[in-house]
């Protein structure tokens, strides 16, 4: 069990070595990256907006009900919601959801290419298949996911504002005062750094599980489940480490 995990870990790093070797035809890699920006990035905006909106709403309501005490000024609700959204929800929770959406997509796409011999066909032509398939995905998510995080922060805070004021737990002016109060810009940097790490984990871990598939469609299904589980676990693990390193 431990041995299997370690040898898998080794194979993962070896695959990364293959992925990050020099591209042979940069033009083609550029074109692939553009395609991936659309399929992995643009197509994720919708789900990120929906989730962030409701997350922001719930966080605001919960913060409001948990601080129902005359000692606390109500603008603290805005402040609390803002910091939870920036520090944790828009980077980590959104990454976990993308691990489910993007990760399973990547693993099943690459797994299918493996079992239908498309990867063999690339290798036979003399193309570095790992680099050709995986590198554009990694680059595309590294470029695009920070935008997703920013979009998530904005919709999350907006969700809190709309639902918080509609439900009457906070006035509009208090909320807006709260989200500006004692704002630490470094928190945004922190969220974006985490996003980059998580994007890398999602694409590489999922690609690895797709790339090593052997067998048929059953194994492709298993690979995509594994991709989601392993990316999520690594995201949570790296989250702890990064939080300690960046905020202490």
């Amino acid at each position: 069990m431990t041995f299997r995990f370690l040898s898998g870990f080794g194979a993962y790093w070896m695959l990364l070595g293959k992925v990050f070797s020099r591209p042979e035809k940069p033009v083609i890699y550029y074109r692939q990256t553009m395609k991936e920006l659309v399929s992995l990035g643009l197509r994720s905006i919708g789900i990120v907006i929906i989730i962030s909106f409701f997350m922001g709403a719930v966080i605001t309501l919960q913060t409001a009900y948990n601080t129902e005490n005359p000692i606390y000024p109500t603008y603290l609700i805005g402040l609390g919601a803002r910091d939870s959204i920036i520090l944790e929800f828009s980077s980590t929770i959104v990454a976990l959801i993308l691990a489910g959406k993007v990760g399973s997509n990547i693993a099943s796409e690459i797994g299918t290419m493996r079992i239908t011999e498309q990867i063999d066909a690339l290798e036979l032509m003399g193309v570095n298949s790992a680099s050709y398939i995986i590198l554009p995905k990694v680059v595309a998510t590294l470029i695009f996911n920070p935008f997703l995080t920013l979009i998530s922060i904005i919709t999350g805070i907006a969700g809190g504002w709309i639902v918080g004021t509609t439900a009457g737990v906070i006035t509009s002016s208090d909320y807006i005062y709260g989200i500006q109060y004692a704002f630490i810009p470094y928190y945004i940097t922190y969220a974006l750094i985490k996003t980059l790490f998580f994007a890398f984990i999602i694409t590489t871990v999922s690609s690895y599980h797709g790339y090593i598939v052997e067998g048929g469609s059953l194994e492709v299904g298993r690979a995509s489940t594994k991709a989601v589980v392993y990316s999520s676990v690594f995201i949570l693990l790296v989250n702890v480490i990064l939080t300690q390193l960046l905020l202490s």
Partner: peptide, 23 residues
């Protein structure tokens, strides 16, 4: 190794059992 094989691979063509077209 992979790099040296590449030169010979450029002179190979292969039809796979399941066609292996890029879908």
């Amino acid at each position: 190794d992979f790099r040296a094989r590449k030169e010979i691979r450029k002179e190979m063509g292969m039809l796979f059992q399941g066609s292996a077209l890029f879908d």
